[in-house]
């Protein structure tokens, strides 16, 4: 069996119970308690998992994350050389190819992950935000890939931008997001959308680690919430 949850009370490392009240002027005790309560290390770094997770379908999430890491690493190398050096540099072209196939792999794994989690109803058991962050990650991934295709500085990116502008303009977004502006797409791609994506993916993974994956339908009773922490009278006085 897994490591038993700690008994209610003060965490020996952080000296928190998880019931610290929020304070605008001294939020640290609350945040420490929140993190201890929601993301204990036994959940963040587990060495056991439910037996039903033993399926190739359950590797799609980690493979998606792995493809994201490969894509970011290869993209970082390309970024070091500049926005267009890969057109004429053999090494740059190879890194661009890894970047390209990393994106393809990521979306392939993500699509299977998406379909699998839908048909296993992975939102059950209080996992609604896990589902929402997953869909948000999918959508922001599309925007990230889209801006990447728009900043390739070749005919391909010219064409995609010229075609995509119509939908953007029709719904009004085009007034501030000009998909034919290669410079804007570059900064969006390497800074904004990737940062948003990493934030959402981090939240998604954190939620998964906190709750674990949803049990098979009908086996929900085998998933037992940890005992609620006992409010401490002196919690607000500890720092």
């Amino acid at each position: 069996m897994s490591i038993p949850p700690p008994s209610p009370g003060r965490d020996p490392v952080t000296a928190t119970t998880g019931t610290e009240p929020f304070s605008w002027v001294r939020p640290s005790p609350w945040l420490r308690g929140y993190l201890v309560r929601n993301f204990p290390l036994r959940k963040l770094l587990p060495d056991r998992e439910p037996a039903y997770v033993s399926s190739v379908l359950y590797t799609m999430g980690v493979l998606t994350l792995a493809a994201l890491i490969v894509t970011i690493l290869s993209g970082t190398v390309i970024a070091l050389g500049g926005v267009s050096f890969w057109h004429t540099n053999t090494f740059g072209a190879f890194m661009n190819s890894i970047h390209f196939w990393g994106v393809q792999a990521m979306f392939l794994f993500m699509a299977v992950h998406f379909i699998t989690t839908f048909f296993t109803m992975s939102w059950r058991g209080g996992r609604g935000w896990t589902w929402i962050t997953g869909v948000l990650a999918f959508i922001v991934s599309i925007l990230t890939a889209f801006t990447g295709f728009l900043m390739m500085t070749n005919w391909d990116s010219q064409w995609i931008g010229q075609q995509a502008k119509d939908a953007f303009n029709a719904i009004g977004i085009g007034a501030v997001w000009n998909v034919m502006n290669a410079g804007q797409q570059f900064t969006l791609h390497v800074v904004v959308t990737v940062a948003v994506l990493l934030f959402i993916v981090s939240a998604h993974i954190g939620l998964i680690r906190r709750r674990g994956v949803a049990p098979p339908p009908g086996a929900e009773a085998l998933e037992v919430p940890d005992a609620p922490a006992q409010p401490s009278v002196s919690a607000s006085n500890r720092g």
Partner: peptide, 25 residues
């Protein structure tokens, strides 16, 4: 009021998150 962390009480298997992630990458 449910505790945000739940624990699976059914059958389990050994695995390691770091190992799995490293192999996947």
């Amino acid at each position: 009021k449910r505790h945000p962390v739940a624990t699976w009480q059914g059958p389990e298997r050994r695995f390691d998150l770091i190992t799995e992630g490293t192999v996947a990458v």
